[in-house]
Write a protein that binds this DNA or RNA. Structure first.
Length: 889
RNA sequence: GCUGCUGUAGCUCAGUGGUAGAGCGCUUCCUUGGUAAGGACGAGGUCAUGGGUUCGAGUCCCAUCAGCAGCUCCA
């Protein structure tokens, strides 16, 4: 038994304060508090897995919690919520194998994870919890889907509008009208070749397929056309791209999103097919190289393939297209693979010079991008160049690079090197020789021996000769447009979002398929459409979800007596996480997804003030929720164009062996155990002390012990371990100057570091301060109190306890952040290094007020410096105040 | 292949062009019949490599090497 009653007993302290916070609802966020500025700090909510929390979760949660607590101390009205992204495959697969209702599994997992999260003492407003699988929540997910279904995109205004406002062309029959409307909905059905995974019995999104195998379980995936729901995210491509400028996100994430959206500007050019009354459109970003187009390549799926293929080529073409169809996406996009192709026997007419060019088919041309056909300019495109070489096609250069551009190339450096090697006479290359190398390269380009995929001056291009690439692009595009041969065009890599899954554990679509083929959305009053109970969670096997097996749920009689079937697909896991940050604002609202005034209050100033989560969501989750947010903005349900003003990504935590944590490696660290052994405060502190938040870094139990000892030291500078009362050294007294200076420097550093999310260095600064203070025989109460205040966001439990021991009766959570005194931070005397020719020879101490001349004299009179100068004159003396003196001799 | 990030003490990391730092670990010593603890002192550096700019480079520029992450023929 420990006789020292006053020891740092983290167990008792942490339980006590967690209970206190819960009982007093200490962290309840106040709607519409105009006396303080608001601050919305959000964590990416977790999937409640059976394995519970891993140490990666508390990393981001601790960071956001420190900011939340700091902002409260700075006088902000802080909203800091937590919830559950609870639909998803694991619970469903567990249901398939055990027959347990995913509802039950999910509830148990949520309860367990909530307990774990609470044990770490995060300052969440638990009254605002959301759960995406709660019908009161997914009712609104379904409601938003209905809005997508009932909206179209107005190209002129570049925004979504209600489908009733869609202008319908005159002269359409009822059936045609219906079709026209359906074709313009932002949520629409399409027959698409999807990634079908027989083992999982479901369709996967592209991002869920890795290397031809399912992300989950690594089962083979094949392509299969199926009816799917799609969301027209492509309509928002431009806005999603443009508005990246107004968010404060890491540049790397912005770049990922920019690349994902993949905008390219160019022209669409129509090529006549020789002998047919048909045109093939191609998209190109280099319309200036049109004169150099020597052949054309179509995707095997192109609609004109059958028609234009000559009789003698029919058989090989058919065979080739069949093979391509069976290839997986992976096989088709593998760069390393040799390009394959087949000639159609048909020719196209180049519209600028009427030359006949052969039309080929190759599967490296993707039907889903641009027009599904390309013009090939081997002289100025690496891929076309390779292709042309391999199949002996004409290479016609139409752009000549400048000498300066040539000099930047690798081939130039290589040839120059070879030349220097050959000429034994001299080591130096003369300008004349340089010129020769440049000219030789230009000649090779003009002869079609080297591919030049960059800008250049137009040659072999008729009356456009001599133009720069930029001028040429503009003029030829205008010319094409005038002649009706083409037009300016913009393409995006971004595709529409495949929004349906053949699963049970997801939001049901509020959609009915009527007998007559009409697709009808439920009315808003009929929401939520609840997930029915099923006997068997196995997929229907036909590719339909288990819901298809429940006849009395699927079959519905409409008010007019006709029959209809419910949509049996469910929504993907992304759906619920697209808008959860809005539901936190008003989680109980039964009338609206969230109250307009509350939304205005909490989302003002550009949305969520700080969003912290893993970088693995850099593209998908963040792009999808931006898309939904913009859609809701168009319909007037949100005030901000962007949902997340500032974004921070936490890095991954590796196991102690430096490897990714995984059960199979046996290097998984369980937060429960760390909390049990060292306490929540030590766990939090260590998670932050490990290194920069964004970095990937390995766990170390020794490191945890290190911060645990720091907390013990912090405890002992305040509390006498024998008595449990304040140390005798802690008294109402004037602090000495050195301590005051260090205190003020520490307050400044910790505050600045929190603002810049450098929590590791803030902790380091506090360690230095504690080390100093522990050596002081007298520790002024005011100094100790201020230290406890800055420690509080990091280690809130111990801080509350110390704060109480210092005689305060209320929680520390709303105490003001201490101000630092700018004057007190300054050093009185400064030690300067004295260098002679850049090498340090001596150190001198001068008053902080000393002027340059005084410093100079003192430096020059140093014996060591005089010795180092060895009687030479000082040519120059550089004095950097507060830093050093450098004497150049 | 392309892009991005990283490379500083044994480990994890700080380091606004101006003195090479912190925590952990380690050495040695001290205190103490509650010690699975505490305290003191100390050792430890080719700042990845090679150039350049500068009075002065861990820091800026160029090249190279190594590691990590992401992308994958987007015309």
């Amino acid at each position: 038994m420990d006789t020292k009653k006053g020891r740092y007993d983290f167990n008792a302290i942490e339980k006590k304060w967690q209970k206190f916070w819960e009982k007093h609802k200490t962290f309840r966020a106040e709607d519409f508090d105009d006396s303080r500025p608001k601050y919305y700090v959000l964590d990416m909510f977790p999937y409640p897995s059976a394995a519970g929390l891993h140490v990666g979760h508390p990393e981001g949660y601790t960071a956001s919690d420190i900011v939340a607590r700091y902002k409260r101390a700075k006088g902000f009205n802080v909203l800091h919520p937590m919830g559950w992204d609870a639909f998803g495959l694991p619970a469903e697969q567990y249901a398939v194998s055990t027959g347990t209702d995913p509802k039950t599994t999910t509830k148990n997992n949520i309860d367990n994870m909530r307990r774990q999260i609470k044990s770490l003492g995060f300052s969440y407003d638990w009254d605002r919890q959301v759960d995406t699988t709660d019908p009161n929540y997914y009712r609104w997910t379904q409601w938003i889907f209905l809005k997508f279904f009932n909206s179209y995109f107005d190209e002129t205004e570049q925004k979504a509008r209600p489908i009733e406002e869609l202008p319908i062309p005159a002269g359409l029959s009822e059936v045609e009208k219906q079709r026209y409307v359906d074709e313009h909905r932002l949520a629409y059905e399409a027959e698409v070749a999807v990634n079908w995974c027989p083992a999982l019995g479901t369709v996967l999104a592209n991002e869920e397929v890795i290397g031809g195998l399912s992300e989950r379980g690594s089962h083979p995936v094949i392509r299969k056309p199926m009816r799917q729901w799609m969301l027209r995210i492509t309509k928002y491509a431009e806005r999603l791209l443009e508005d990246l400028a107004e968010v404060d996100w890491p540049e790397s994430i912005k770049k990922l999103q920019t690349d994902w959206i993949g905008k390219s500007v160019g022209a669409e050019v129509n090529f006549k097919v020789d002998g047919f009354d048909k045109e093939i459109g191609v998209f190109t970003t280099r319309p200036d190289t049109l004169f150099g187009a020597t052949y054309m390549v179509m995707a095997p799926e192109h609609e004109l393939v059958d028609m234009i293929t000559s009789d003698e080529k029919k058989e090989v073409v058919k065979k080739y297209c069949g093979q391509a169809a069976r290839k997986s996406d992976l096989d088709r996009t593998d760069l390393a693979k040799e390009k394959t192709c087949v000639f159609t026997g048909a020719y196209a007419i180049n519209p600028v010079n009427s030359e006949k060019i052969p039309i080929w088919i190759s599967d490296y041309v993707l039907i889903s991008y641009g027009t599904g056909a390309i013009m090939s300019v081997p002289a100025h495109d690496e891929r076309d160049f390779e292709f042309a070489k391999k199949f002996n096609l004409e290479i016609k250069p139409v752009a000549q690079p400048s000498q300066e551009d040539i000099k930047k190339t690798k081939i130039y450096t290589d040839r120059l090197f070879d030349k220097a090697f050959d000429s034994s006479q001299s080591d130096n290359i003369t300008p004349k020789e340089e010129n020769e190398v440049v000219e030789s390269i230009i000649e090779d380009i003009k002869a079609g021996k080297i591919c030049w995929p960059f800008d250049g001056k137009a040659i072999n291009s008729g009356r456009f000769n001599g133009l720069s690439t930029a001028q040429f692009k503009e003029q030829i595009t205008n010319w094409l447009e005038e002649k009706g041969l083409g037009r300016k065009a913009i393409n995006y890599k971004l595709r529409d979002w495949l929004f349906s899954r053949q699963r049970y554990w997801g939001e049901p679509f509020p959609i009915l398929h009527a007998e007559d083929g009409r697709v009808v959305g439920l009315s808003e009053e009929d929401l939520p459409l609840e997930l029915p109970k099923v006997e068997n969670y196995k997929p229907a096997g036909t590719g339909e979800s288990p819901l298809a097996n429940i006849a009395d749920w699927v079959n519905v009689t409409l008010p007019d007596g006709s029959k209809a079937k419910r949509e049996t697909n469910t929504m993907p896991q992304w759906a619920g996480s697209c808008w959860y940050y809005l539901r936190y604002l008003d989680p109980e609202n039964g009338q609206r997804l969230c109250d307009a005034e509350k939304e205005k209050y909490w989302m003002s100033g550009g949305g969520v003030d700080l969003y912290i989560g893993g970088a693995e969501h850099a593209v998908l989750h963040l792009l999808y929720s931006r898309f939904w947010h913009k859609f809701l903005y168009d319909l007037g349900y949100s005030q901000s164009r962007e949902p997340f003003k500032k974004l921070i990504n936490q890095g991954m935590i590796l196991g102690e062996d430096g490897q990714k944590m995984s059960k199979s490696r046996g290097n998984v660290v369980n937060p429960d155990k760390v909390v049990a052994d060292y306490g929540a405060d030590s766990t939090r502190l260590y998670e932050m002390f490990m290194g920069p938040l964004e970095a990937t870094k390995p766990w170390s139990m020794q490191g945890v012990e290190g911060v645990y000892r720091f907390l013990q030291r912090a405890w002992r500078i305040v509390i006498d371990e024998d008595t449990g009362k304040l140390c005798e050294a802690v008294k109402k007294a004037q602090a000495d100057e050195t301590t005051l200076r260090l205190l003020n420097q520490t307050i400044k550093k910790v505050g600045d570091d929190i603002e810049s999310f450098s929590f590791n260095t803030a902790i380091s600064a506090m360690m230095i301060f504690v080390n100093h203070l522990s050596k002081q025989a007298v520790r002024a109460e005011s100094v100790v109190g201020k230290f406890v205040l800055i420690l509080a966001p990091f280690a809130p439990h111990i801080a509350e306890e110390l704060w109480a021991k210092l005689g305060h009766s209320d929680t520390i959570a709303y105490e003001s952040w201490p101000e630092y005194d700018k004057e007190l931070i300054k050093e009185k005397e400064i030690e300067l290094a004295v260098q002679v020719n850049g090498k340090i020879k001596d150190r001198i101490v001068v008053s902080a007020e000393a002027d340059e001349e005084q410093i100079k004299q003192k430096a020059l009179s140093s014996e060591k410096v005089i010795a180092a100068m060895a009687g030479k004159e000082a040519k120059k003396v550089i004095v950097i105040k507060s830093r050093l003196v450098n004497i150049v001799i």
